[in-house]
């Protein structure tokens, strides 16, 4: 009965999606079919949304990487929400694991893993920092960078059964990084005209110190994501004796 329901629903979904795909057209971002209208003024504008991103990313945001420009600048509000989802999840995780105390004993790792992870840890952290600092120039950014940093701490947790991050430090990092993100948005409201609008100089496009608020936000996101993911793993590992 259950299996039949599963097969029927799966087949239905498969068929719906494949059928819908037959109507998906190949996209050309110079075609006039996709010219957008201004939702506030109402008139037709002679460009497509994608075309606008590709044409104007450099001079509007100072970033070379268009994906970064969209994530942090054009649709920065989504990213604020996304960071908040992760924050909510990590709050929920620490809240729910609060009541569970007893944990299984873990075996000590072997010498190579223990010593090796000590040597590798600084390099992992450095790579993570490199990735989120260069978010506006290369593929990557705050989220991958933060995950790399968290993976460094995960390695330490695997190697040392008694290794725990200080809960208070993790939560302070989270709070301060989140605060910086929101405050930069509000400064945009004060110094420019919109929330999250860039209010710094764009600088020399293509250099490390350029692109206005993008690197600052990405550094905050990098710290926040790193702290949140390591906090989640720390909680999943158990409570410090």
């Amino acid at each position: 009965m259950r299996r039949m329901a599963g097969i029927v629903l799966a087949a239905l979904l498969f068929a719906c999606i494949m059928y819908a795909f037959t109507f998906v057209k190949t996209y050309d971002y110079n075609s006039s079919d996709y010219y957008y209208t201004d939702p506030i003024e109402g008139g037709k504008v002679n460009e497509t949304v994608t075309g606008h991103y590709i044409e104007n990313t450099k001079n509007e945001t100072g970033a070379i990487n268009a994906v970064t420009a969209i994530v942090v600048e054009y649709r920065g509000f989504d990213t604020l929400g996304e960071v908040t989802v992760l924050f909510t999840a990590s709050t929920g995780v620490s809240m729910l694991l609060y009541s569970l105390h007893q944990r299984r004993k873990r075996r000590e790792a072997n010498l190579i893993l223990k010593e090796g992870s000590k040597i590798v840890l600084p390099f992992i952290l450095l790579t993570g920092a490199y990735i989120f600092i260069h978010g506006h120039l290369t593929p990557g950014g705050g989220f991958p960078g933060g995950s790399v940093i968290a993976s460094g701490f995960l390695l330490m947790m695997v190697a040392y059964p008694k290794y725990f991050l200080k809960e208070s430090r993790v939560s302070i990092t989270e709070s301060v990084a989140g605060m910086i993100f929101v405050l930069i948005g509000m400064l945009g409201l004060v110094f420019a005209s919109y929330f999250l609008e860039n209010f710094l100089s764009l600088g020399d496009v293509g250099r490390l110190f350029s692109a206005g608020i993008i690197p600052i936000i990405y550094i905050a996101i990098g710290f926040k994501v790193g702290a949140e993911l390591s906090g989640i793993m720390n909680n999943l590992k158990g409570v410090e004796e």
């Binding site: 991103y53 994530v71 990213t79 996304e82 989802v85 992760l86 999840a89 989220f143 989640i232």
Partner: peptide, 19 residues
Amino acid sequence: PLPQALVLTAIVIGVSVLA
């Protein structure tokens, strides 16, 4: 580039829910 930015968001949301 827009769907790629959306995917970045969707991945992070997926990870959070999974955790």
